[in-house]
């Protein structure tokens, strides 16, 4: 079981308290009616499913209840960074470099 750090509670808690919410930084278009069918299909279904560093939404559902984002390395199943909703997506290349050191 993983330990996950909640950036709102500022504590590490077992995975049981959290739910994964899929890939992060996929914003719902503010006016969906302007989206072409391809764009909308992309929004609905297409995910990068990265082998490597993946930005995911997580929710501390049995804690504060809040969503936050996390970078998880999907091969070793390691959390590299967590950050609050609304904060920009970190530079994945820089994180990858740091992790490989």
């Amino acid at each position: 079981m993983l330990l996950i750090y909640c950036p709102y509670c500022e504590v590490e808690r077992p995975e049981l308290e959290f739910r994964c919410g899929g890939e992060a930084h996929i914003a719902r278009p503010t006016d969906p009616s302007t989206q072409s069918d391809e764009q909308w299909a992309d929004f609905l279904y297409m995910r990068t499913n990265t082998k490597g560093i993946y930005a995911e939404r997580w929710r501390h559902i049995h804690g504060c209840g809040r969503f936050f984002n996390a970078l998880r390395e999907t091969v070793g199943d390691k959390f590299l960074k967590v950050y609050k909703t609304g904060e920009p997506k970190p530079d994945l290349d820089a994180i990858a470099k740091e992790a490989s050191r």
Binding site: R19, A27, R28, R57, R59, F67, T85
Partner: peptide, 13 residues
């Protein structure tokens, strides 16, 4: 309930 929370927190804060 979870879906509502999701939209409230992440799409329409």
């Amino acid at each position: 309930f979870a879906t509502m929370e999701d939209y409230l927190q992440t799409e329409w804060p």
